[in-house]
């Protein structure tokens, strides 16, 4: 499985993490193309179901990237997202899935470098975990 290329979905909030991702691009800081971003107005908008659905549909890993603590454009959406992610981690554990397949990250709009770093680390992590059970079934890993 050395050439395993995981599918990773990142839900990024418009104001911080998505801007940080743009910033990474603007500065030509490379990160793995495995990461596909879905823009949301606030990470508080990311329903726990969306995390489950992403995994169901074949994502090997999913993360939510929001603003730094205290910087949320909508006061505390990022903290709610953190709680949703935590909840799904527990569910995954119950299911016998690796809870590390979901994660929460925080970036300010200017943190392009850190965004790329986060994407890189998460991709490495998922690579080490291997394909998710669902992505294997969907038959599209590798």
């Amino acid at each position: 499985m050395s050439n395993f290329e995981p599918e990773i979905v990142a839900f990024c909030c418009h104001y911080c993490a998505y801007t940080a991702a743009d910033m990474a691009g603007t500065r030509r800081i490379s990160y793995p193309s495995n990461v596909k971003i879905i823009r949301v107005p606030c990470t508080g908008k990311v329903d726990a179901i969306h995390l489950m659905k992403a995994l169901e549909k074949g994502a090997d890993g999913v993360y939510v990237a929001g603003c730094l603590d205290g910087d949320c454009h909508f006061k505390n959406g990022n903290l709610r997202a953190t709680a949703h992610v935590e909840k799904i981690k527990k569910v995954l554990e119950d299911l016998g899935w690796e809870p590390e397949r979901v994660a929460m990250m925080y970036f300010s709009a200017g943190m392009g470098e850190q965004f790329a770093q986060g994407a890189k680390e998460f991709t490495e992590k998922i690579k080490s975990l291997g394909p998710s059970p669902a992505s294997q079934t969907v038959g599209k890993a590798v």
Partner: peptide
């Protein structure tokens, strides 16, 4: 919402 979450969980579990 809980119906959706549980259903997803059941599906993921069966896949596993």
């Amino acid at each position: 919402k809980e119906v959706g979450l549980l259903s997803s969980a059941l599906r993921l579990h069966s896949v596993k």
